[in-house]
């Protein structure tokens, strides 16, 4: 029996603007990501990738459809949850293109911050953060400030922060864009490892065709619609 999807979008639509100036960014998007699955989202500029990611992150409100996250209906004709920030804190981990580590906190505290926001006391949060950094093989750089980290190290710390609260959903916005091929491959392997270990659903927006092979599934968007969905090789040939 297939496990219930952690990310589920049914007939999602989103437009911006009014009247003639209105742009339909997404139309009839139906997509699901299962636990342990790593799904890539690709498409040309303006195809609706970022809008889709923002919708799943509950940053944007859909116009129509149903949005379910980790089994909870989050949007259906309106938000079903009042505190969306708490929802993100509890269920979603974010990985950014340029790591977005807070420059005034060292690696440990960048990770510990996510834990303290979830209510864990600072000493315990720091202990867990160090363990996570060790697990991601950046433990030796635990006290380094972000400016002193290499691109790959910083992205690992960012991944550690995203994983700190053991979210069921991980959203990544071009996580390998600032990395060379080798480091990009390492980061993707790490995401695959996390997806397996934590049974998390990973949705990655990417343009980086060098890492397509590392996805379980690729979804191609064009003009706000899903153009192709399937194995990475199929998506590559379809677009």
């Amino acid at each position: 029996m297939m496990p219930a999807p952690l990310v589920e979008l049914i007939g999602i639509a989103k437009g911006f603007g009014q009247g003639e100036a209105r742009v339909q960014a997404l139309e009839g998007i139906t997509l699901s990501v299962a636990p342990g699955e790593v799904v890539g989202l690709r498409g040309p500029s303006g195809s609706g990738k970022s809008t889709l990611l923002n919708l799943v992150a509950c940053i944007l409100e859909p116009d129509a459809g149903v949005l379910r996250l980790a089994g909870e209906t989050v949007w259906e004709g309106g938000w079903r949850r009042r505190d969306l920030r708490a929802l993100r804190r509890e269920k979603i981990g974010f990985i950014f293109q340029f790591h977005n580590l807070l420059p005034f906190l060292d690696a440990t505290d960048n990770v510990a911050l996510a834990l303290t926001l979830a209510g864990i006391e600072l000493p315990e949060a720091r202990r867990q953060a160090r363990a996570l950094l060790d697990h991601l093989q950046v433990g030796k750089r635990a006290t380094a400030m972000p400016a002193k980290l290499s691109g790959g190290e910083a992205q690992r710390v960012a991944i550690a922060r995203a994983l700190a609260n053991q979210p069921r959903i991980i959203l990544a916005d071009e996580p390998t864009a600032a990395l060379d091929s080798e480091r990009a491959g390492v980061v993707m392997d790490l995401l695959r490892q996390v997806a397996r270990e934590q049974s998390a659903a990973v949705l990655v927006v990417t343009h980086d065709d060098k890492i397509f092979a590392r996805f379980d599934r690729m979804v191609s968007l064009r003009d706000g619609r899903i153009e192709a969905a399937g194995l990475p090789a199929a998506a590559l040939t379809a677009v």
Binding site: A57, I59, R85, A86, R88, R89, P103, A114, L117
Partner: peptide
């Protein structure tokens, strides 16, 4: 600006 946006995205409440 970017740090505050990140804080909001990872769930920091407005009071923080």
């Amino acid at each position: 600006m970017r740090e505050i946006a990140t804080l909001k995205l990872i769930g920091a409440p407005d009071r923080s």
